[in-house]
């Protein structure tokens, strides 16, 4: 029967256990994952099983690592996300976390757009490090993502988006993520993209400030190709700060909605 081991298709006898398989292939392993779920070494393999064999404490070779990264996600999901393209507009508190979450998920092409550099007031909620202060956010985020998933394409653009350049920069992507800080810029992106890019799915955010309940974070739809995540009231202002837990929670909802949309056909 046919199974897949660490991304490669092989033929084995019926009633082979996963431990016997590891001996057969001479792959040392102490963590056995089948179809995205960890199993005991006595697990008897079935036709079409997707198997990951992992040895803890040991760096796998590059050929297998890409597949091992997605052991808990499944090959079908991996294949679809690998061919997907998303663009993240603004990579601050929302966008840096959205981009990392989608890179971890294996989205194959991620364009990140921001004009700014990393500075000290970013660190409390954005995914950057102190030793990245002064770098362009696009370069800093690319460096982080390459340490998470080196198998995807990151396109960096250091520009300020406006109503004249937005369509040119974001057209051709499956999902457009609006992750700006400024309310007027959010509206600009939405108004331009909803009408002019009907084949892209647009995910915005509004109302992410403070440390209010996360259960007031809702998803509202705008037409057939756009949704917006947030509480729609808590804006940043004097004595109304932005903090990691709530901004990250909204970013995670945006990223989850992107994955849901990209995997809608399976």
């Amino acid at each position: 029967m046919n199974i897949t081991v660490n991304g490669k298709s092989i033929n084995i006898d019926n009633s082979t256990t996963i431990y016997e398989l590891s001996l057969l292939l001479n792959i040392e392993a102490d963590l056995f994952i089948v179809n995205s779920f960890p199993v005991d070494k006595s697990y008897i393999l079935n036709e079409n099983d997707n198997v990951s064999l992992i040895k803890k404490g040991q760096m796998p070779d590059k050929e297998h690592l890409e597949y091992l990264l997605f052991s808990r996600q499944g090959l079908d999901v991996y294949k679809i996300l690998k061919t997907s393209k998303v663009v993240v507009c603004g990579i601050g508190g929302l966008g840096s976390h959205v981009a990392i979450s989608l890179a971890r998920s294996g989205v194959g092409t991620i364009k990140i757009i921001d004009y700014d550099v990393v500075e000290p007031s970013n660190i409390n909620r954005q995914s950057y490090f102190i030793n990245q202060i002064g770098l362009y956010k696009t370069q800093a985020l690319k460096n982080i993502i390459e340490n998470i998933n080196p198998y995807i394409k990151i396109i960096c653009k250091n520009i300020m988006l406006n109503s004249h350049n937005i369509i040119n920069e974001v057209s051709g992507f499956d999902v457009i993520l609006e992750c700006f800080d400024n309310a007027e810029t959010k509206v600009m992106l939405m108004e331009k993209c909803i009408k002019e890019l009907p084949s892209s799915f647009i995910i915005g955010a509004s109302g992410v400030a403070g440390y209010f309940d996360t259960d007031i974070i809702k998803i509202k739809k705008l037409g057939s190709n756009c949704i917006v995540v947030g509480d729609f009231e808590n804006e940043a202002g004097f004595f109304k700060g932005l903090m990691a837990p709530r901004v990250t929670a909204c970013a995670a909802v945006q990223a989850n909605e992107a994955v849901k949309y990209l995997l809608k056909d399976i």
């Binding site: 508190g93 929302l94 992750c179 700006f180 309310a183 509206v187 109302g207 804006e235 940043a236 932005l242």
Partner: peptide
């Protein structure tokens, strides 16, 4: 917004308003 003053509202229309506030 540019079309708010042209859009006529009719009986039983279902209207949703999405407000964008700053922060991110």
């Amino acid at each position: 917004k540019d079309d708010f003053s042209n859009k006529i509202i009719n009986e039983n229309d279902i209207i949703e308003l999405v407000r964008f506030v700053g922060g991110g």
